[in-house]
Design a protein around this nucleic acid. Sequence first.
RNA 1: GGCGCGGUGGCAGAGUGGUCAUGCAGGGGACUGCAACUCCCCGUACAGCGGUUCGAUUCCGCUCCGUGCCUCCA
Length: 457
Amino acid sequence: MPLKLYNSLTRQKEDFVPINPDHVKMYACGPTVYNYAHIGNARMAVVFDLWARVLRHLYPKVTYVSNITDVEDKIMIAAKEAGVPISEITEKYTKIYNDDMASLGVLPPDIQPKATEHIEEMIVQIQQLIKGGYAYEAEGHVLFHVPSDPSYGVLSGRSRDEQVAGARVEVAPYKRDPADFVLWKPSTDDQPGWDSPFGFGRPGWHIECSAMAEKHLGLPFDIHGGGADLKFPHHENEIAQSCCANGKENEPESFSKYWLHNGFLTVEGEKMSKSLGNFLLAHDLVQSYPGEVLRLAFLSAHYRQPLDWSEQVLHQNQVLLDKLYKKLEELSDVEASAGDVPQDILDALMDDLNTPLVMASLNKLMKEKDGAELKAALLAAGNIMGILQHDPAAWFVSDEDGLTPEQVQKVELLIAERIEAKDQKDFAKADEIRKELLVMGIEIKDTREGPTWEQLG
RNA sequence: GGCGCGGUGGCAGAGUGGUCAUGCAGGGGACUGCAACUCCCCGUACAGCGGUUCGAUUCCGCUCCGUGCCUCCA
């Protein structure tokens, strides 16, 4: 069965046919580092991390590039407000982003290029666009001239006329056409900037991805991804820039063959917005929940569907992970290493990343199989999904609010007392001890092998 | 206004032209001193209206409702 994916460019599910099966290439637009990443950024990172994992499973070599946008007006504003150099802001939030994503089981992309390190490439591309008649200079700016690109709008499915009609922003006077967008803009001395043939300035937003994708992957490459909102204008503009720079304005596939877009996220049924005060940051969530629970929650809806983030979703995925880890704990003495990814799970992933179906398969797996076979299957499934990477025993002891050795001693003392009480049929006392432990956040479970305990989340 | 996406049982969420999703929550039972854990059992869900069909939740059309994008927001 071939890998299937929904290509935003053709608006249908297609068989994935790599340009070169020996080396598959994917690019996904990463965050602008001016603040903590919100959970929408995190969803994108998790989704494309999973795509990368699946591709790596299927092809011998995969290069996954995801950038860091470290020059942008919002960063300038943040730096000004904080009274620090731009780099201090970008370095800080890049590190936090990478750490937080690591907590979510997101493997680092093979290459994580930074915009500021690719100014040269951007300038070259802008020059190509000017030379080809696709861009022009005006008042210190360089603008991409949209009417020069006959196929502009292929991705978002809008004709140029429609956009003009829908334009709701004041059009800068130096634009030849209202739809024209900035490739380069002038900087003042107190703003970040670079010398260029067009004067001291900084790049527009879209050009960086065109330049970095081409440099690190070469053209064309297989897959380009990002959040659904980037489809227009960002990705549309990337296509325009990259194709026109190479004189292939009627060949959108000369840039990226497939386009993948992940859906949006709401919080408790509402759109995430600063004014509603429900702006959830990945950084905060990572402190409050195990990363794997969050990861699974992100994957509990299909990546293209909207996902409503709620306590209930978190709970549901916590329960599933607990069950999986419990099984692995039971099987801790069983000799088994990760085997093949179970066929139904692989099939689900290969069908446009049908992760909800994977969850169902995981449940089914636990019912139908056992022993070494189950353990090997779970470990393999965990590897490709990016979960079950912890020691099962450690999973049930939360290390964040870990107990001090004294506390552990006390817990064990109480449990010993309770065993004794039970032996003497003093159930009132036994129950009292259990209650006491519960107050401490410890839950007792009597098993055939004697009582065990775990900390309540 | 333009371009999209979606409406599935209390909730989350797949899928299919004609037997079953799955999970969470809830109910019942087994186990237990009692619990918890675990296990077993339990729900006539596919927005509405037409059409195609022997048969539609699944295909087509319309209606209603929700939602995203339309210049820098994943």
